[in-house]
Design a protein around this nucleic acid. Structure first.
Lengths: 245, 245
DNA sequence: TATTTCCTTTAGATGCGTCTAAATCCTCGC
DNA sequence: GCGAGGATTTAGACGCATCTAAAGGAAATA
């Protein structure tokens, strides 16, 4: 009934709404999806007609309950696929996104069910993003600390790294900064740079923009750096984590 | 570069070409894809412009080498997906087709590689259809015996059951007629019906139309019916089999 | 407050894939 | 060898998703 493109718009609006709050601007969606503003305006009209969003002219849009449900469905497909690709087809953490984007509109409900079952109904994907439940219940979008919020001496565990830049994800993957990784903040430079010690003992410096996209929670446990984590095996979501991407 | 729809046309032309021979009629493609003849004519024009097929007006079309390569690529995706779904996601033999159709245009080369690897580079899919090799070398389309070619007393092994009717496949699956199954022909009725004994000892009667879509080879080995086969584990293609679907 | 600047929307056009209706061509039977 | 019937193609239209160019509204600044 809905086209792939419409699903993409709903997903985009949902994501922007989740991070930046309610009325979502035409230009924000245009930039997110790589379309021109008139194209977006035109699609807003169609989605409004179908009752998937509400529009206040020149102000922006907001998803209706129905529109949000569609977005959650697509997001569930996306994140289940990411988890599956990482776990069963040996995709690296940074590679999963594009493949999931390509497939998310085309899998059947049956496929969704079976993938979820094989994975043991995971609650987070390899980036630490929460996977909507099968009943597509709304997700609670609490604000979580980011690495950028912390100062020297703080010890944290990475919970989520959501970013659409594959290169950035690749870099972090190589640096050993993944969901589940423990980090010690060893320096905060005044010009927008955070330096952390990873579990392996290496030090990594990250620009603020990157640090701001790394969600963390305070670490409680042993001090020194052992060999605790791996890539994406925390698939039961026991880190008290929250939505956004 | 090519749209999903174009790929579908090329695949359809390839399939028809493989079974019914060279110039493929507009109407044949129209029926195969559920489109009207003018729509097909129009698409033939576009595919010709791109050098993917050759057209003789009012006669029909034939794929160029390039067009055939595209068709083989799509078919490789399709059949690898079918094999993967059956083997790793617990799909039944009759369910795989539709899901593979939906996904075949959207998987990356990387995905293709990894699926092939996980499956151990299978040469046939769960229906017994040959999977094009990674280099997309042309497939040799020999004619194989069908169940309908055989008479009372013949003992055969099913090599391929290619059909687009899900219900028919479901029926055969329940009847225990699958690639690898041994069958004894016990009766051939004059009004278009073949009766076979399956490995389990059950007798099944099948109309000629169905018998004609079941490819077989003569059975050489022990007589009686044991418990040899399963559903789709003959994925190395050791049955000397041939193309069509 | 007036103006400038930026954002959004309207207007109009394009390419794709599809359709129906009508014209054209091929072939088979007489 | 001619005509009838069936297949194919042309003609013309439509909906979708997109664009560029131009017009209109909102908000910030002077």
């Amino acid at each position: 009934m809905l086209s792939d493109v419409m699903e993409d718009y709903l997903k985009a609006i949902y994501q922007i709404q989740s991070t930046s709050g309610a009325p979502v601007a035409t230009s924000a969606v245009a930039e997110y999806l790589g379309k021109t503003p008139p194209t977006v305006t035109s699609m807003f009209g169609k989605l409004e007609e179908r009752g998937l969003l509400e529009r206040e002219k020149y102000k922006g849009v907001e998803l209706t309950e129905e529109g949000e449900t569609v977005a959650l469905e697509v997001l569930r497909h996306h994140r289940l696929l990411e988890a599956y690709l990482a776990e069963h087809l040996d995709y690296s953490w940074s590679e999963v996104h594009d493949e999931a984007d390509a497939l998310e509109h085309h899998i059947s409900e049956e496929f969704e069910r079976r993938v979820a079952e094989v994975l043991g109904n995971p609650t987070v994907d390899p980036h630490g993003d929460p996977i909507p439940t099968a009943d597509l219940a709304p997700i609670d979008h609490e604000e979580a600390d980011t690495l950028g919020d912390h100062g020297v001496g703080d010890r944290v565990v990475v919970t989520r790294v959501s970013d659409r830049e594959e290169e950035e994800l690749e870099y972090l993957e190589n640096a050993g900064v993944l969901p589940g990784t423990r980090l010690d903040v060893v320096d905060v430079a005044p010009f927008g740079m955070v330096t952390v010690r990873t579990e392996g003992g290496d030090e990594q410096s990250l620009p603020d923009s990157v640090a701001a996209s790394i969600r963390v929670r305070p670490f409680e446990g042993d001090p020194a750096g052992g060999e605790t984590n791996g890539t994406g095996d925390d698939s039961d979501g026991s880190n008290g984590e929250v939505p956004t991407t």
